[in-house]
């Protein structure tokens, strides 16, 4: 029996839709539902949110009760620091590297492949590499600063609350910049060579070509890199877990790690759900930005 024109697409759609319903929609709804469930009283309330936001336990703290000049400031604030530092660094580095590799470096494919390695390696391995990168015995960064005579930065960065968070962010710049370079390199291919050559003919400097000719034409790519990096920063977990475990003194803790600790260590699924919802709410504006941009 031949299927009607309407029934055929419905049958095709039913399987993926049902998978989405079971594995995406149901967990999402259930997570929001659980986040309001108070296991003590069996009722629904905001208690889980209040508890997670007010916790002063160094391994669960989302917002510090008092702010010092150095971490720990709380997992939520640390995520925002990640966004504030990591996003501009990755975007700028990616832009500059892609530009230089395209117009000024011969054999740039090899360099791009090396840069791309960062996002090929599993993030947990990346976390271990970061730990060694900033180790005072074998690490590159402390060795360089030791030669430069900067005593404060010749130590193991991940061991000190003053430097641990920034070590992870800088290490992640190395890991994630390969992604930015790849996106910008692809976008650069779409810019006609004549634009750059014309600018050169008119005597434009390298800086002017970069800032006035290249960057304006890369706006869509910049949006992709910024949004994807923000999302990477909000859900950052493996790197922190493998390198510092959120320490020392909770100075590198992040939302996803707190969510995991509630879930796997304390087996408090309801507070874990509350942290997950908070994480989603913070990331939501960026997701909305992507959706809007995709529509445009």
């Amino acid at each position: 029996m031949a299927l009607s024109r309407g029934l055929r697409p419905a049958l095709f759609l039913s399987f993926p839709l049902s998978l989405i319903a079971v594995f995406v929609l149901y967990p999402m709804v259930a997570t929001v539902f659980y986040s309001f469930y108070d296991k003590e009283t069996g009722s629904f309330s905001l208690n889980n949110y209040i508890d997670v936001l007010l916790s002063a336990h160094p391994l669960y703290m989302l917002v510090a009760q008092s702010f010092g000049p150095t971490p720990p400031w709380g997992a939520l604030i640390h995520n925002l620091v990640w966004v504030a530092l990591h996003v501009p660094l990755v975007t700028l580095l990616g832009l500059v590297l892609a530009f230089l590799l395209k117009y000024y470096v011969k054999g740039s494919t090899l360099v791009k492949a090396i840069l791309f390695l960062g996002i090929v390696i599993p993030p947990a391995v990346g976390g271990l590499i970061i730990r060694f990168m900033f180790d005072n015995v074998v690490g590159v960064a402390p060795t360089v600063f030791s030669y430069l005579g900067v005593e404060e930065l010749s130590k193991t960065w991940t061991a000190y609350p003053q430097t641990a968070l920034f070590a992870l962010i800088l290490g992640s710049v190395w890991i994630w910049s390969g992604f930015a370079v790849t996106i910008f390199s692809a976008a650069l291919e779409s810019i006609p060579k004549s634009h750059v050559e014309a600018a050169k003919v008119f005597g434009a400097s390298m800086w002017h070509i970069f800032s006035r000719v290249i960057v304006p034409q890369l706006k869509p790519a910049v949006i992709i890199v910024v949004v994807m990096t923000v999302l990477w920063d909000m859900k950052i977990f493996d790197i922190v877990y493998a390198s510092t475990g959120g320490g020392p003194g909770g100075s590198t803790n992040v939302l996803a790690l707190v969510m995991y600790t509630y879930f796997a260590r304390a087996l408090d699924f309801y507070k874990s759900a509350a942290v997950a919802v908070l994480l989603t709410l913070i990331a939501a504006p960026f997701i909305a930005l992507v959706v809007r941009w995709l529509r445009e």
Binding site: G6, L7, P9, A10, L11, S14, S18, A21
Partner: peptide, 21 residues
Amino acid sequence: GLSTKAIVAVVIVLVAIVGIA
């Protein structure tokens, strides 16, 4: 752009799968 039959079919399949799950 689906017909009534198609929508009913989708709903039945969805309910069945969710029910089994």
